[in-house]
Design a protein around this nucleic acid. Structure first.
Lengths: 178, 178
DNA sequence: CTCAACCCTAAAGTCAACAACAAGGTTGAG
DNA sequence: CTCAACCTTGTTGTTGACTTTAGGGTTGAG
């Protein structure tokens, strides 16, 4: 490994400025170098200092910004959201808490929306799997396939109707489901 | 395919034999005509009969298949999954219940995976929003931005550490958070 | 006959968030 | 010097599920 860089080779040699090359920053943050260049291209990272060789040399501030991005991603923000969050972050004084909280709450609502959609799917799917024997015999009378084919799937948005009953009846009445 | 052994099963099973043009099928199923053509292109819909004008004329079986696809989508299957499901559906006898149930359970696991990921995000986000006043004053000391900037976000996979404590302390100690 | 509302095909564009590739320059160890 | 391992730019490809575009034919009412 070649950890040897020239700390003072950069024009503005700051005392505390431990500058990282892109591969080092990548390793330090757990993302790929392509991702870092992509973030820069997208305007999420400000263009870092360059050496005479054209290499990017990242400051600790750049490192912090990458961490900011990753944390924001981890709680569900998109890169586009993060661009907005960063514009709030870099000029905190000229923005309000409300703006920030609004974004967080909007994202929260979005996440809860997606969760309830998934919960709906999970309910429907578990009803289906519960009704299916899963045995090694022919799928000719498989309740899952029949439910998908004949419209007994309890998965439409609102409209929680006698779907499950219909499915349950299938099991009882025919005694053939799966 | 059911059409293999049923050039007349169609006419016998359903005396109606009402064939729809693509726009009618679209209206009947709630998808766009482009989507229907796309499904056909992807092999999810078998090529329907054509008139002398080149128009597609869909049979009731075609309609049923679209419904199958939509129901499968509604419970979380991808189009690729559905292609597989359809191959099971079309030749049920040569497949087992187990195959079908395995697919459903795999999808269920996938959905639960995504749900727990979302739940993790929701926890982190609601902790953040709870800690933020959301008021109209400067975001200078906004706890949300600070948490994102300083790494107090409780959102990494496992590793549930004193993150929330750190966040809570921020509120108490500084008395400035937001 | 005209005109809107249908229908057709093939190909390209969209979104997000990168990954991969081509074609090179730089660095440092051996 | 070579060689691997870095770094550079710009372009294109990936995934999924469509949507849009371009450039046409068909149908039926007025």
């Amino acid at each position: 490994m070649s950890q040897l860089f020239s700390p003072e080779a950069i024009s503005t040699a700051r005392a505390s400025g431990k500058r990282l090359r892109i591969g080092e920053l990548a390793k330090a943050t757990g993302v790929t170098v392509e991702t870092l260049r992509y973030y820069e291209h997208q305007g999420l990272l400000t263009a870092p200092a360059r050496g005479d060789n054209g290499y990017r040399y990242y400051s600790p501030e750049n490192l912090e910004r990458v961490h900011f991005i990753l944390r924001a991603k981890a709680v569900g923000f998109t890169l586009k959201d993060i661009e907005e969050l960063l514009s709030l972050e870099v000029q905190r004084e000229s923005h309000t808490c409300q703006e920030v909280k609004d974004m967080a709450e909007a994202k929260l609502a979005e996440i809860e929306q997606r969760m309830s959609e998934l919960a709906r799917m999970r309910e429907a799917l578990s009803t289906l799997t519960d009704a299916c024997c899963g045995g090694p015999m022919s799928a000719e009378h498989c309740t899952i396939l029949s439910a998908l084919a004949e419209g007994e799937v309890h998965a439409e948005h609102h409209h929680h109707s006698p779907d499950m009953e219909a499915l349950a009846q299938k099991r009882d009445s025919h005694s053939s489901g799966c």
